[in-house]
Amino acid sequence: MKKMSMLKAAVSAVTLGAMSHIAVASDFEIGIGAPYYGFDKELNLEDKVGVNLNAGYRFNKPFGLELSYSQVATDIGGIDTDVADLRLDGLWYLANEGKILPYAAFGVGMLETEVDGFDAEDEETVNFGLGVKTHLSQRIRARIDGRWLHGLDSHSNHSVITLGLGYVFGASTPAPKVVAAEFTDNDKDGVEDSADMCANTPAGVNVDAKGCALDTDRDGVADHLDNCADTDKKLKVDAVGCPVVLSEDVSIDLSVKFSSGSDVVDAAYFNEIRGVARFMEQYENSEVVIEGHTDTSGSAAFNKKLSQKRADAVAALIVEQYGIESHRVKAMGYGEEQPLVAENSKADQATNRRVVAKVSAKKEVLEVK
């Protein structure tokens, strides 16, 4: 642990030194990766994929420095084991410019192993290997890196293959071209008239290589007229580049059955009632009227009270159990006044013993091209 702490301190010092030169550096890169560790078989460690963070500084010469920290969760015979790999590497770029940058690497570091939460071993290491970086854009690089890692104390040998992405600071840009004396640009957009496909572009508008106003989100509205940047190109937009909003009706129905003479809500209907509550959470302006109904058995006055109790029971679940505001939920008992079917059987009576509701709301959607 003491050795690892000293190496971490050295890493921090080199990192700060490199970052202090970002303003004038041609290439400073930070990255993340997924390293696959093939451990020495004699150590009985299971081969695993870990996580990696790195920071590298490439000088104007082909040589660069890189700090790398990886952590792998593995095991020894079923016992949880964590391996931390901290390295300081030198990279020699075999191509100093271009989209593809192959390199050779050599470095020193420290492996720290913890078995079941207890420090087991700190070991100094050396490593060497090869890798390739490729530009996905001016700032983003993909990377594959293969290393042979040798432990100086145990003489163990490990292999590490890492796939990663890096972000580049201070990338160099081409020097401005010398403008010939005969260069003409009537609309002053920086594109010569002979190559300008959009003459008379307004002053101060950013244009592409063809002299046309930029449309970064490709919605058909130039950036200087676009009030809604980064619109998805699948969406229809209006004259100022904002998505066209449509309104459509959405609704959800509720139907709860009751035993004869009972106002107890069967647990089988809880999911359906919860669904109504979730709908009302999503559409905050929606309201619901819970309607209670009975069959014709019993007196009309009794049925009126029973239907109100049934409606109240469902409403109480929506308000008290699922947290919908009480002013958005009303309960109304209709007794036997609104039967669904004529009661010629017990099944008909069961059909009429019910609580029903329908919740509607307006939903805004973005129109697709």
Rank of each mutant, 00 (worst) to 15 (best):
D89Y: 03
D75P: 04
D80V: 12
L65R: 00
V108L: 13
Y93N: 06
I76A: 01
V72M: 01
G77A: 10
L65E: 05
G109T: 11
Y103D: 13
T81K: 00
L101C: 14
T74H: 00
D82P: 01
G78F: 03
A95H: 09
L111I: 15
T74K: 00
G109S: 12
R87H: 02
L67R: 00
L88A: 13
T74F: 00
A95F: 01
M110N: 13
K99M: 13
T81D: 13
L86I: 12
V108I: 15
E97F: 05
R87Q: 13
V83G: 03
A105T: 15
T74W: 01
A73S: 13
A84Y: 05
G64P: 10
A104Y: 06
Y103E: 04
V72E: 05
V83D: 10
L88K: 01
N60H: 08
L88T: 07
V72S: 00
L91F: 01
L88F: 01
T74E: 09
L86P: 04
Y103W: 08
A104Q: 08
G98T: 12
L101G: 02
F63A: 10
F106R: 08
G98D: 07
G107L: 08
L111P: 03
S70V: 10
L91H: 03
A84H: 07
F63I: 15
L88Q: 00
Y103I: 13
V83M: 06
R87L: 12
L91G: 02
I100V: 15
P102Q: 08
V108M: 07
D89N: 08
L101F: 04
F59H: 11
D75G: 06
E97I: 12
L88N: 01
W92D: 12
Y93C: 05
E97Y: 06
L94S: 11
A104P: 03
P102W: 02
W92A: 10
F106I: 15
I79A: 14
D80M: 06
E97L: 08
D80Y: 08
K99D: 15
P62Q: 02
I79T: 15
